[in-house]
Write a protein that binds this DNA or RNA. Structure first.
Lengths: 198, 198
DNA sequence: ACCTGAACACCGTTCAAGT
DNA sequence: ACCTGAACACCGTTCAAGT
């Protein structure tokens, strides 16, 4: 790639990150090109579809979560590893409104540029669930899809301004539903006792 | 209202209901006017903003849910009333993709045409929660906003094609988190024993 | 090679002109 | 009173013309 093209591409990514943080995944591409000081055609040359731009922004985060899941699998107890990872993946959407809807779509759509990254991440998360289930620490009636559905729903809550302040609390509530009764003690420790939170 | 105007209005609502069921709350208004056989200006004369059209479609459903909550409050045990209502409100979104996002926005926005209807419904639901909490049947660290956040998240799951088949199961999982341990027996009865569901 | 912006087909919304 | 569709300002996406 020519030096000027690389510079344009990198700058577009920087600007896109800011704009998406401000306006969400459906931000205007014209606006991104304008703020980056390049023509709209230049944006399309580097990122032929909106998805290609978002993919470039999200892939590194998703791959990092995959790595993180594998770390937790060997470093931490099965129940704590699962719940910790659940909180971390939900937190990733903090500055990326709409990221989770993209992940859900990418898993279902094999042609998506994000497909491989998301499927790998889902597999890594499912491993954490299976490991905890093998020791009877989590509900037996949940599969990997259920885990990702709950994660997605909680991340969606984070995206809603009127619910954002309660989202962390509700993540704990849902986590308590995933764990079997006997394993819920460390959750109470983690949140500093049963908070009233009214 | 003149007879021809009333006829146009009613027909627009019928067509809008079908189109929104097919395409969701962000369906093209041009498309609705076209399929109703009226000019685009006619649609805007009867429903000056998109929200006014959706409001006409949703208000009756939300008001029915308010009535239903008040019925359950006097007819059914506190825990069963709450969980039954939770399932019913989640089910309302089955043929209205995006209905819950509208409800969330309407509660936060006092100028919304749906505001009164949604706030009343939220109050009715909160009453069911408080009644169950008063008898110690549900977690004490949940408020009415938390209840509606969980409802909204579950309804959002119903809207996602890849999660829709698991949404009812996950509603039961979340319901089990809302109930205190001693009151979870009727949930197991309701779902016919602990289902493996893999 | 790469960049640019006009052009195309859409959208929500408004409004002057008709009946 | 009510209806109509052109007009306006946006959007995503494409592509002929430039450097």
């Amino acid at each position: 790639m020519r030096a000027d093209a690389r510079k344009n591409r990198d700058h577009l990514l920087e600007v896109a990150r800011d704009v998406v943080n401000e306006q969400g995944a459906d931000a205007s591409l014209r606006d991104i090109a304008r703020r980056a000081g390049v023509g709209l055609g230049t944006l399309y040359r580097h990122f032929p579809r909106r998805e290609a731009l978002l993919e470039a922004l999200l892939r590194t985060r998703f791959d990092a979560l995959t790595t993180r899941a594998r770390e937790l699998e060997t470093s931490t107890s099965p129940d704590k590893a699962l719940i910790t990872w659940l909180h971390e993946i939900v937190a990733v959407t903090h500055n990326f409104r709409g990221a989770i809807a993209l992940m859900v779509a990418a898993i279902a759509e094999p042609d998506s540029a994000l497909h491989a990254s998301c499927v790998t991440m889902k597999a890594a998360g499912t491993q954490l669930l299976l490991r905890a289930q093998a020791e009877g620490l989590t509900r037996a009636d949940l599969n990997g899809t259920d885990l990702f559905a709950l994660i997605s729903a909680l991340a969606w809550l984070h995206d809603q301004p009127s619910f954002a302040t309660r989202a962390d609390h509700l993540t704990n509530v849902v986590a308590s539903a995933v764990l079997t009764r006997s394993t819920q003690d460390f959750l109470r420790e983690a949140s500093g006792g049963p908070a009233a939170g009214r």
